[in-house]
């Protein structure tokens, strides 16, 4: 049903083709912004804290792909404030299907395709430019680590939006802010102070989306091994997301009519 719901959105979105291209264009531009920044900075300096251009692009690409996955699989969660605020969650509560999945598939981020395309191109380019010694075992673990990294990102989006159960706004400003927090990890974590580093690796583990997996693949820095913990981080994030929904739904009082 989750898949069917998403599929219906693809068809509905294609109905408005012009709007679809506007979105692709907008998303393409917004993904370029970070690259423009990286490009402008690396035009003046050879490395940031020991991390070279393509290493930073690798982290950046992982965040971008994670972003794309959030848009693909959890875009509907951005509507949660509206659903809660206008009491429209009632409809979902009477259906025999987990609310968290119904909410996530409420809408499909058509921008996902643009984001994923940009992210994939960047990832492939960065890996081609970097000299990684690939062995079958290393490739297999890398796949697991990268997949877990994407789960981390999607779950964090859902968690951020679950805040709507407690915060009574009609727009997900908080979640949008939390998303910006993730943008911190588009750059090497080592530029931050120790407190922020700890925060981004444990409480809100955005560092497991881009930085740690990339550092492990590159074998760069003393904490490269931390990347292997990415599946654990993914399990943690999924658990928190599910719990956030469970407790959130208990607080839900259908508004108005």
């Amino acid at each position: 049903m989750y898949r069917r719901s998403l599929g219906a959105h693809v068809r509905a979105s294609l109905e408005y083709e012009a709007d679809f291209w506007i979105l692709v264009f907008g998303v393409g531009l917004s993904q370029c912004v970070g690259l423009v920044f990286i490009g402008a900075v690396f035009a003046k300096v050879p490395h940031i804290n020991g991390w070279g251009l393509w290493e930073v692009v690798l982290m950046y690409s992982m965040m971008t792909i994670g972003q794309g996955c959030s848009e693909l699989f959890a875009e509907g969660s951005w509507d949660l404030p509206m659903l809660v605020n206008r009491g429209e969650l009632d409809r979902m509560l009477v259906r025999p299907y987990p609310v968290i999945l119904q909410v996530c598939s409420f809408r499909l981020g058509m921008n996902a395709f643009g984001t994923l395309a940009v992210g994939t191109v960047l990832l492939v380019t960065a890996l081609a430019r970097l000299h990684v010694h690939w062995t079958p075992a290393r490739a297999a673990i890398a796949l697991l680590v990268f997949a877990s990294a994407l789960v981390v990102k999607v779950s964090l989006t859902v968690i951020a939006n679950a805040s709507a159960f407690w915060l009574r706004g009609t727009i997900s400003t908080f979640a949008a802010g939390a998303d910006q927090l993730g943008d911190l990890t588009r750059y090497p974590l080592t530029i931050y102070g120790v407190g922020l580093r700890a925060f981004l690796s444990t409480a809100v583990p955005f560092a497991f989306v881009g930085f740690f997996p990339a550092a492990w693949v590159l074998g760069h820095g003393q904490s490269a091994w931390v990347g292997l913990l990415t599946p654990l981080a993914a399990a943690y994030c999924v658990t928190v997301a599910v719990l956030a929904f469970r407790f959130g739904l208990r607080r839900y009082d259908s508004a108005g009519n």
């Binding site: 408005y16 012009a18 709007d19 679809f20 506007i22 979105l23 692709v24 264009f25 907008g26 998303v27 531009l29 917004s30 370029c32 912004v33 423009v36 058509m110 921008n111």
Partner: peptide
Amino acid sequence: THNYLGVSFARAAVSAV
């Protein structure tokens, strides 16, 4: 357009740069 999200993305990107 029915899709304001794309417009606002584009505007935000252009104006950020």
